[in-house]
């Protein structure tokens, strides 16, 4: 499969990438690992006139603990690098584990967190984790930088709060050990048919508050408010099943394809919410 012809520029800095985005206008697309965009270009679902390569930019790399204790991940970090990070394994194991469960080794060697978040495939894993962790997406544009909460960033299918000319530069979140992700995966692609991320605040054997988010089931990653409310004050792990019951019922829109009907995805949302909550509680 051969994509439409395009011009290619390799940016040597984020500033240059921003300038090239301005120059290219709506025809321009950013590419780092290319594992979301290139398959779409091969099917001619995307036909950019200008491809701007930001994959090698040092400014977009790194996994670091900041002065306030939060963890920042650069947009160009690959899933393999995130999966192997000792810092994440210790302080936010859900992020490393989720990255390790994306696609396969070859996909993880190329695909990046920035690409995954900006592309916002409805079956992508990391968006749910970022929403559950209440992560902040860092964005740079011609008018400077801005921060967007992950739950506001994901808006619809393949649609995020990113204006023309803007770049996702990274993501930032507070450390959280008592969080886990569980997914029902499509066996060939490993995309989530349903994936649920649960981040709990635990007080002894009970849950004082929770953030729970789903991907795969609907058009975009979003919180499961009913489950979060049911978890507040629940004793865990015993209360996980009742808190998760009906988790999929409140979703406004549910995906339906040959891999799973709407009813199946709703049912599996409850199942995988329970599993994610139990796994997160087990870390308390």
């Amino acid at each position: 499969m051969i994509p439409t012809a395009f011009d290619y520029r390799r940016a040597t800095s984020v500033a240059e990438a921003l300038a090239l985005l301005q120059e290219g206008g709506p025809e321009a697309k950013l590419l780092a690992g290319g594992h979301s965009l290139i398959p779409m270009m091969k099917q001619r679902l995307a036909e950019p006139g200008l491809l701007i390569d930001i994959g090698g930019l040092d400014e977009l790399r790194g996994i670091e603990e900041q002065d306030d204790g939060d963890i920042a991940i650069g947009a160009a970090m690959t899933h393999a690098e995130i999966a192997a990070s000792e810092l994440l394994r210790a302080q936010a194991p859900i992020v490393a584990e989720t990255a390790a469960a994306i696609g396969d080794a070859q996909v993880r060697n190329r695909g990046t967190i920035g690409g995954s978040l900006a592309h916002a495939d409805p079956g992508a894993d990391l968006p749910a984790v970022m929403v559950a962790l209440d992560a902040t997406i860092a964005i740079l544009g011609p008018n400077g930088d801005r921060q967007v909460a992950a739950e506001d960033f994901f808006q619809d299918i393949l649609t995020v709060d990113l204006e023309e000319g803007e770049i996702v530069t990274g993501v930032c979140f507070a450390p959280c050990r008592s969080a886990a992700y569980a997914k029902l995966e499509q066996r060939a692609s490993k995309f989530a048919l349903v994936g649920v991320a649960a981040a709990l605040t635990l007080d002894g054997g009970s849950c004082s508050s929770a953030r729970v988010a789903v991907t795969g089931a609907s058009s975009h990653a979003q919180r499961l408010g009913g489950v979060e409310d049911a978890l507040a004050g629940a004793s865990l792990p015993d209360g996980a099943a009742s808190a998760a019951a009906g988790a999929g019922d409140g979703l406004e829109f549910v995906n339906e394809d040959l891999h799973g009907s709407e009813g199946y995805r709703r049912a599996m949302t409850a199942v995988f919410a329970r599993r994610a909550i139990e796994a997160a509680a087990g870390r308390g």
Partner: peptide
Amino acid sequence: LLDGRSTKSCTVFAVL
């Protein structure tokens, strides 16, 4: 292997 890491060469442009 692209810079030592396994890579699906159908999903990488030669220019990359």
